[in-house]
């Protein structure tokens, strides 16, 4: 069946991969909605607008006679403005839903986040979709992603609209602006020999192409009969690995191997982090080392993705090792050119 696709946030990191996958498989009706335009392809229509403005998005949906939407837009989760999160993730998503219902859009796939079930300190051990939202979210980003997800799932069935939410964990890839740069920064600061914790905690990651692929599967498979609609799905690479192993794999791409490893127990890490946070509170500077980072490095955070496997037929296309290689390639190229 031919769909008229709309990718909201199609100039963003995940959104762009979705667009390219759709172009690659020969889709003829692709529209992108984003707040800025970064890509200029002949074959796609581009709408520049603000998601929190209902008319911007409803105009686009009406004019292009959209039938299927992949909604990937969200401010980056290290952003500062709490108001922006509410505006885009919640109000913006509401606008999308209302426009979908009004103009009879059939499918809506929402890019949620695995962090919607994370309270900031509990371990996530092989967590599946039966896990509840936490009573108190870790931060506003998580809270607004969860609120957006709830709205999308509740809208399932309104005026024939079918919806689902994908919850990727730790998205990384070429030119990502959040994951890979963080690892490289540690390397540049010469801190790769420090290990907090015993490296026996497993963590999930998602290569961006796998994440985009899951969106394509979801939009293709979404139906009432196969129990795909109205559901949330964790999406990862399906291969949890010890936290520091992935860091070291990334550093190894730059031919960097820690000469030796100094291991600190996580309790020690918490003490140092508390002191650092206190110091930054007094001086007013951004703390480089926080208790959250200690927890991030020392607790389990991985998911059971069997629901996505069974209902969406999801199986990662690119494995973790290959994903890391591809993700580091642009950085390596730029280093070689300088």
């Amino acid at each position: 069946m031919v769909e008229n696709y709309l990718i909201i946030g199609g100039d963003g990191f995940v959104g762009r991969w979705v667009v390219e996958m759709l172009i690659k498989r020969g889709e003829t009706s692709i529209t992108v909605f984003d707040i800025v335009q970064r890509y200029f392809d002949k074959e796609i229509k581009h709408y520049q607008g603000d998601l929190s403005n209902y008319d911007d998005i409803s105009d686009c949906i009406e004019k292009e006679n959209i039938t299927a939407i992949i909604h990937t837009a969200s401010p980056p989760h290290d952003g500062k403005s709490e108001g922006l999160f509410w505006e885009v993730n919640v109000e913006g998503t509401k606008n999308v839903i209302e426009a979908c219902v009004k103009f009879g859009v059939k499918k809506l796939v929402y890019t949620s986040s695995s962090s919607v079930v994370y309270d900031g300190y509990s371990e996530l051990i092989n967590t599946d979709e039966t896990a509840p939202y936490p009573e108190k979210h870790m931060n506003v980003y998580n809270e607004t992603k969860a609120a957006g997800e709830k709205l999308v799932l509740e809208a399932n069935g309104r005026n024939g609209l079918l919806t689902c939410a994908l919850r990727p964990c730790g998205i990384f890839g070429p030119n990502d602006r959040q994951a890979i740069p963080g690892f490289i920064k540690v390397m540049e600061q010469g801190q790769t020999k420090f290990q907090i914790g015993n490296n026996e905690n497993f963590v999930d990651w998602t290569y961006v192409e796998n994440c985009a692929y899951a969106h394509i599967l979801a939009v293709d498979k979404l139906s009432v009969e196969n129990q795909t609609a109205g559901e949330a799905y964790f999406i990862t690479n399906g291969t949890p690995v010890p936290f520091w192993d992935l860091c070291r794999l990334i550093w190894a791409q730059f031919n960097h191997y820690p000469p030796y490893i100094l291991k600190f127990p996580s309790s020690f890490g918490f003490v140092i982090a508390s002191l650092a946070e206190l110091a930054s509170y007094i001086t007013g500077k951004e703390p480089g080392f926080t208790r959250f980072r200690v927890r991030f490095a020392t607790t389990n955070r991985y998911f059971n993705i069997n629901k996505a496997r069974n209902r969406l037929g999801y199986e990662p296309l690119v494995d973790l090792e290959e994903g890391v290689k591809r993700a580091c390639q642009p950085v390596l190229n730029s280093l070689n050119n300088n």
Partner: peptide
């Protein structure tokens, strides 16, 4: 990494 994955 393959050994890490196998252990995971």
């Amino acid at each position: 990494m393959k050994i890490s994955v196998a252990c995971g």
